[in-house]
């Protein structure tokens, strides 16, 4: 089955991004496809390559980048939400791309299921 995922909260502040990641990983492990993850609201902060957690903590941003690389997951950051919050191409982590809200609509029309994680 083809999945779309929406992440509406930033990393470390809220569990949403962790839940979304663990869901995506489990779906892929079962042979499903995670076609796109769309980051909206404060969720755009999951894409900042300037993120530097303490060494004994999980690296939420790198974890998404790795998932994108290993399983061809399209990580899309909403442009309007990103610009509001100081996320731009120059501080974007690997595997993420900035695009419009139409990509969220597409994640609804082109997948079998769209799951939202937020507050």
């Amino acid at each position: 089955m083809k999945f779309g995922i929406v992440v509406n909260e930033g990393p470390y502040q809220h569990q949403a991004s962790d839940s979304a990641y663990l869901f995506a990983k489990a779906a892929i492990a079962q042979g499903h496809e995670v076609w796109r993850v769309f980051f909206y609201h404060d969720g755009v902060n999951n894409s900042s390559k300037l993120t530097e957690p303490p060494q004994d903590d999980r690296n939420i941003v790198n974890r998404w980048s790795r998932l994108a690389e290993e399983h061809k997951v399209d990580l899309v950051v909403c442009v309007a939400a990103a610009l509001r919050r100081g996320i731009r191409d120059e501080n974007l982590a690997q595997g993420f791309r900035i695009s419009g809200l139409g990509q969220l609509v597409e994640a609804g029309t082109q997948t079998d299921r769209l799951i939202t994680f937020g507050d």
Binding site: Y40, A81, L104, V105, G108
Partner: peptide, 30 residues
């Protein structure tokens, strides 16, 4: 597509950004 709004405006950004998605979704003829 159904958009469920359960949050008040201004206290958080959700209402505004939800409206932005609604307009785009309508523009995609859904």
């Amino acid at each position: 597509f159904m958009f469920v709004n359960r949050k008040a405006p201004y206290g958080t950004v959700y209402a505004l950004e939800s409206l932005e998605v609604v307009l785009i979704t309508a523009a995609f003829d859904q």
